[in-house]
Simulated scan of single mutants.
Amino acid sequence: MKNYSSSLQIPTHPNRTLIPEEEKEEQNNPQPAHDNDPEEKPRPEWDFSLSTVISSPNSATDAIGVIEFDQSENLLATGGIARRIRIYSVQKSLTSPENGGGGGAAGENRVTFLDHAAACEYYICTPAKLSSLKWKPGSGSRVIGSGDYDGVVMEYDLEKQVPIFERDEHGGRRVCSMDYSNSDPVLGASGSDDGTLQMWDPRCEGGDSIASIQPNRVVSSPVCCVEFNPFGQPIIAVGCADKKIYGYDVRRMVDPVFIFEGHQKSVTYTRFLDSQTMVSSSVDGCLMMWNTEDQSLIRTYRGHVNNRRFVGLSVWRKGGLLSCGSENNRVFVYDKRWGDPIWVRGFEHVGQTRCDRGFVSGVCWRQMEEERCTLVAGSSDGVLQVFEGQRKVPM
């Protein structure tokens, strides 16, 4: 552990979006059946519309890999290959006054177009490309943590706009994901291409890891995602390139308390929907919902295209909606009750001409009202688009 205050050197790194080599080949893979009633179709209960587009002339070299709202839901942070953490104010940049901050029927809202330089409150330069961002609980939205391609976890004081903490325990291998526990004391964890989960407690003298776990004990398999259960249970979920999801009790990090098997390729994201329900994403092109109590598969979601890259996953807990990106450059929204998408929107290029269509590389819901919602999506072209939704009034 270091108290970090020296100047930062900027190395070069590969593209964050690629999955480990062993996952690049097969596209036709068997999928587990989901339990949806084939007679029941998703009901159109929501209207979504595009509210704001944020881009810049050099967006094509500024792929957005991660998007995170803070605990107050008033600030948004983004990171990616441009080695910058950008901070946006929701009220000033992401919510258009003409739209009333809510959203209406598709096509009713006026779209606001902004430049990144004008839209973001400020940005912090980082020493490497970023793969993960998390706001630190209990910091009053002052501290944000990041995982990067150098295998380093950093914390930044946003008020002073300086790095204040560094962990380098992954041997220079990319940190794919990092997270904080919401419990007291605040625990931190990171997963890496080195095949390990590292966990630390800031109270520990010297800052050494309190646990170093290799989920796959037979073959070192990259850890693609880590997430603490945010509802009070002492559980951390770990998704790996070996197609499995491991759950550990943070009080005794020896053996997993559950292992979920069902995905056919690397598990790229896990998100807790409630205290005993978790959603996972994989480059097998599907999402899966799991019950962590009886360790059963509840439902499988299909429609988006994902066979190679990190495309994001976010859950809106109050509304029961899921969202992910897609390699066909579209944003997908699923209702947790149905396996087919309820809304799909193409991600148009803004002021750019490219042969490569790009892909939607990150999504994040704003966890606010129950009748209105805000979804922010980022692309490999460095463009942010803000969508606002409103629940339809029953006839």
Rank of each mutant, 00 (worst) to 15 (best):
M1W: 02
Y4E: 00
I10F: 15
P11A: 14
T12H: 08
T12R: 08
T17R: 15
L18S: 12
E25I: 15
Q27F: 11
P32G: 08
E39C: 14
R43V: 14
R43G: 07
W46Y: 10
D47C: 13
S55G: 06
A60T: 11
T61V: 15
A63G: 04
G65T: 11
G65R: 10
I67R: 00
D70P: 06
S72P: 02
N74V: 10
I81A: 01
A82W: 01
A82F: 01
I85F: 01
L94V: 10
L94N: 02
P97C: 13
G101S: 08
A105K: 15
A105T: 12
F113C: 09
D115H: 07
D115E: 13
D115Y: 11
H116F: 15
H116K: 11
H116R: 14
E121C: 12
Y122W: 09
C125D: 13
C125Y: 14
P137L: 14
G145F: 03
D148I: 10
D150E: 14
D150C: 15
E155C: 10
L158P: 00
E159C: 12
E159D: 10
K160S: 14
V162Y: 14
I164R: 02
E166V: 13
R167L: 10
R173G: 01
R173I: 10
R173K: 12
S177I: 06
M178D: 03
M178R: 02
M178E: 05
Y180Q: 02
S183N: 09
D184G: 08
P185V: 05
P185Q: 06
G188V: 03
G195T: 06
G195P: 03
T196F: 08
M199W: 05
R203T: 06
D208I: 14
D208A: 15
S209Y: 05
I210R: 04
S212Q: 12
S212T: 10
Q214Y: 04
V218Q: 14
V223H: 07
C225I: 09
P230Y: 14
G232A: 13
A237W: 03
K243H: 14
K244I: 09
Y246D: 01
Y248A: 02
V250N: 05
G262T: 06
S266A: 12
S266C: 11
T268M: 11
Y269M: 07
L273D: 02
L273R: 01
L273C: 06
D274T: 11
T277E: 05
V279N: 04
S282F: 01
M289V: 05
E293D: 13
D294G: 10
L297R: 04
L297G: 00
I298L: 04
R299E: 00
R302K: 09
G303N: 03
G312E: 00
W316V: 05
G319S: 08
L322T: 00
S323T: 02
C324W: 00
R330G: 05
V331W: 03
F332R: 03
Y334D: 00
K336W: 00
P341D: 01
W343Q: 01
G346V: 12
G346F: 12
G351M: 11
T353E: 07
T353V: 14
V360C: 07
C364I: 06
R366M: 02
Q367K: 13
Q367P: 03
E371M: 11
T374F: 00
L375A: 01
V376L: 05
D381G: 15
D381Q: 14
G382N: 07
L384C: 06
L384I: 08
Q385I: 11
K392P: 03
P394E: 11
